[in-house]
Nucleic acid binder design. Structure first.
Lengths: 259, 259
DNA sequence: ATAAAGTTTGCGTGATTCTGCATGTTTGTT
DNA sequence: AACAAACATGCAGAATCACGCAAACTTTAT
């Protein structure tokens, strides 16, 4: 039994580095106990990290080598096929230096996790989940819109969020669409949510609508905007070209993400 | 019979990534059992995801692959038992019908998940992670404060959040304390964060400070408030009573959560 | 419908990695 | 100088791993 209730090698090393950064020093003997491994193993970890210049080895333990000794690695996330593909396609529309709106919702959450790792941009969102996902992005600045939380869609709504939105003008705005119909336009099932989306669209230069194919051609209670308000319509590969023609005719650039 | 009661490849991989993001760690052996597949299959999944840069493969399993995320999970990993106990103790202070502030941060996140299920109250928070945790609570109303996201602590900061806060007056305010010292008071390591906490405290009738024992008696760069601004100080069972006397002398009600 | 081509999975094999222990050396202290 | 703690090194057992192959299954072509 090597590890079962215990930590893995890289995990241990990450913890060692973290405490070094936090506390400025580290005793090998103490950590062999705390990590449930022999002192030899701790020593081996420290030797290895020292060879990588990540810390300074001393008799009895280790000292930090530099302050900004942040860990390694980049980013991640998961993929229900269609939404994943849509998110990926949408991510390509974002450019360095832009300010973008990202609506809350499950589809746009995929977009958040697919933003290029090297992207330098500002993201304004009304979805706490989007904010959490972007918290691990190395460069993008995240601004959360405040307000009452509408739990079903996990978005903030209400007058407060609406007001804040007016302080921004986005280059691109990504809206998750519960429903879109060529003639009816975009529509949702909650009154407050409709308001938020409308405000987002109003203060953006370009608008991208993200929608899974099965919601194409449907309509709900509250209309947000006419179809021609969209600059882009991004859907997945299972959408039929025939149905998409109606949107193209209205001047919308339709993007079919290949699944 | 390839899959019957079992999962498909992409489904599995999505689950692996999701738990990695949620728990910060993943054992191959454990998940081969949980997913009803051989360890080889799990290994193949992990290898594939690693090639896509979605995670960091290590001996025995996998780790997440993001800088800010790693920093945040490092915080979560720090003394989880103590934070959990503190969260539980803090939850008992909340009463039906109250309006409460919950600060962002890893300790207060525990509080959010321990709020009684039958509680009817309004929670105002500057931590998206707290909001996400509370989204599944049946009754509490959640209001998110907007603003720039300070990624290390996952809290929103800045003038916007500050302004919004003024619209509320809370019965109780739960603040995570990076650092507290009887004479110096509460202090943190980020300027903006200090402002937010100060504003929270200013517009609350009672203030509860949540702090793990090892941070008692320490100080950081930016002072938030004097110790006597606290109504309650909630810490874990490992705190020494001798050290707590100083806080009691200043009129603070000290609560020691049993670990 | 049937055949062919391609996936995905589980298992066997041998290679690799990790850990703890034993041994002997270095370091710091008295 | 003497001693103990910390250390490096080599080794063995165990866990983990990569690779190849065959079976079960899916998709595509006929």
């Amino acid at each position: 039994m090597q590890n079962h209730a215990n930590f893995m090698k890289e995990e241990r090393q990450a913890m060692l580095l973290a405490t070094l950064q936090r506390e400025g020093k580290l005793l090998a003997s103490e950590w062999s106990e705390r990590l449930n491994v022999s002192e030899d193993t701790v020593r081996r970890d420290l030797r290895e990290l020292a060879r990588q210049q990540k810390l300074q080895r001393v008799h009895g333990g280790a000292l930090p080598r530099s302050k900004p000794m942040a860990a390694y690695t980049a980013r991640q996330r998961h993929e229900p096929a269609a939404k994943n593909a849509i998110g990926q396609a949408a991510a390509t529309l974002v450019q360095d230096g832009q300010l973008i709106f990202i609506d809350g919702g499950t589809t746009t959450l995929q977009l958040a996790s697919h933003l290029p790792e090297e992207l330098h941009a500002t993201v304004v969102t009304n979805g706490p989940a989007v904010a959490v996902a972007l918290a691990m992005h190395p460069f993008v600045e995240v601004i959360v819109l405040g307000g009452k939380l509408y739990k079903l869609a996990q978005v903030t709504v209400g007058a407060a969020a609406l007001n804040e939105m007016k302080n921004f003008h986005a280059d691109v705005c990504f809206v998750g669409l519960c429903s879109i119909h060529p003639q009816v336009g975009l529509s949702v099932e909650d009154f407050e949510e409709a308001h938020i989306k409308r405000a987002m669209i109003a203060s953006s230069a370009e608008v991208a609508g993200l929608v899974i194919a099965e919601h194409l051609g449907t309509a709900l209670q509250y209309v947000v905007a006419p179809t021609k308000a969209l600059t882009y319509l991004i859907t997945d590969g299972t959408a039929e070209d025939a149905g998409l023609e109606a949107y193209r005719a209205l001047g919308v650039t339709v993007i079919k993400a290949k699944t």
